[in-house]
C-alpha cells in the first residue's frame, strides 16, 4: 500500500544549521494496517507525513503508493486519496463556510460547477449524526462557531466522507481538552474500523499508541528505532516503551508531555 524506499531529507542545507530530518528511512505499510507513531519532538514524525503527502519532496529516495511512484506528485493531487488531519483544529476546515459546505467541498466528486444535491445532504446528515454531537441539526451554521473538539470531529468527517486510501493523523487530539480528545479518538477508531482504512497516527499519548491500531513505530533522529506488532506489542506497557527508547537511543525520552501521558493508565 504505502512504501518509502531510502528516503532522506535535510533542512537548512548549506548553512551551519544543516541537519538531516529523515535519514535513509525505509518503511512498508500494508493495506488495512493502523500504525501508531511515537517519538520525541524533532524525531521526524511530522516530516515523515510531509514526505508522504507531498508537502515536502525528499532529497533522495522514493515514495510509492499502491505500487506507483508518487515522489514528485504535487500535494493537491495526492490529497485526492490521502486524508490528513493536523493538531490544530482550526486548520482543517474553513470557518466562514457552513458545516454542510465544508463537507460538500471535501466530498466533491470533481465537477466544479455542481451544486449540492439532496442525496449529499442526507449523506452528510447521517455522517454527522454518527458523531453524537448534535451537529446534524446545525449544518447551516458556519464552522467557525464550533468548539475545538466539534471542529476536529467535522475535520475527521471531511477526511473520511470519501474513504481515503491512506489516513494520516498528526497528533490530531493533542490540542483538545481531555474529554473532547477521548471523544474524537473514539470517532477515529470507529471511522477507521468502518472503512478498514489504512491509517498512520502520530501521538504523544503512549497509552493510546499501544491501545489503538495494530502496529507501533518509535522514531528518533529521523529513523525508525523500534517497529513492533502482533503478540510482542500486545504484551507491552508504556514503561516498556520508555525503557526501549532509553536502550536504543541512549537517552531519556525527554518530552514532559509524553512522560505525563505515559504515567496515565492506558
Amino acid at each position: 500500500m504505502l512504501e518509502l524506499k531510502n528516503v532522506s531529507i535535510s533542512f537548512s542545507k548549506g548553512t551551519a544549521d544543516e541537519h538531516r530530518a529523515i535519514g535513509r528511512l525505509s518503511l512498508r505499510v500494508d493495506e488495512g494496517e493502523f500504525v501508531t507513531i511515537i517519538g520525541a519532538n524533532g524525531a521526524g514524525k511530522s516530516t515523515l507525513f510531509n514526505l508522504i503527502c507531498g508537502s515536502l519532496i525528499p532529497d533522495e529516495g522514493s515514495v510509492f503508493i499502491d505500487g506507483r511512484n508518487v515522489t514528485m506528485d504535487p500535494e493537491h493531487r495526492r490529497a485526492a486519496y490521502i486524508g490528513r488531519i493536523f493538531r490544530d483544529p482550526m486548520r482543517g476546515s474553513a470557518p466562514g463556510l457552513t458545516i454542510e459546505e465544508n463537507l460538500s467541498l471535501a466530498a466533491g466528486t470533481g465537477k466544479w460547477m455542481s451544486l449540492g444535491s439532496r442525496q449529499d445532504h442526507k449523506r452528510f446528515r447521517d455522517a454527522l449524526a454518527q458523531l453524537g454531537m448534535g451537529l446534524e441539526d446545525r449544518m447551516t451554521q458556519p464552522v467557525g462557531l464550533l468548539s475545538g473538539g466539534q471542529r476536529q470531529a467535522v475535520t475527521l468527517m471531511m477526511a473520511v466522507i470519501n474513504p481515503p486510501k491512506l489516513l494520516l493523523l498528526d497528533e490530531h487530539t493533542a490540542a483538545l481538552d481531555p474529554g473532547s480528545a477521548e471523544k474524537v479518538l473514539d470517532i477515529t477508531k470507529q471511522a477507521v474500523a468502518l472503512d478498514r482504512l489504512t491509517c498512520l497516527m502520530i501521538t504523544h499519548d503512549m497509552g493510546a499508541a499501544l491501545r489503538l491500531g495494530s502496529r507501533t513505530l518509535m522514531m528518533d533522529q529521523g529513523r525508525v528505532i523500534y517497529d513492533v506488532e502482533g503478540e510482542e506489542r500486545s504484551g507491552l506497557s508504556t514503561q516498556d516503551l520508555l525503557r526501549k527508547f532509553r536502550e536504543t537511543s541512549g537517552r531519556e525520552l525527554e518530552s514532559d508531555r509524553m512522560l505525563l501521558s505515559a504515567g496515565r493508565k492506558p
Binding site: 486548520r91 474553513a94 459546505e101 460538500s104 466533491g108 466544479w112 455542481s114 451544486l115
Partner: peptide
C-alpha cells in the same frame, strides 16, 4: 457551486 465553495475556502483558510 463546488468551484465557488473552493474559492471561498481559499480566502477563508
Amino acid at each position: 457551486t463546488r468551484l465557488g465553495l473552493a474559492i471561498r475556502a481559499t480566502g477563508d483558510n
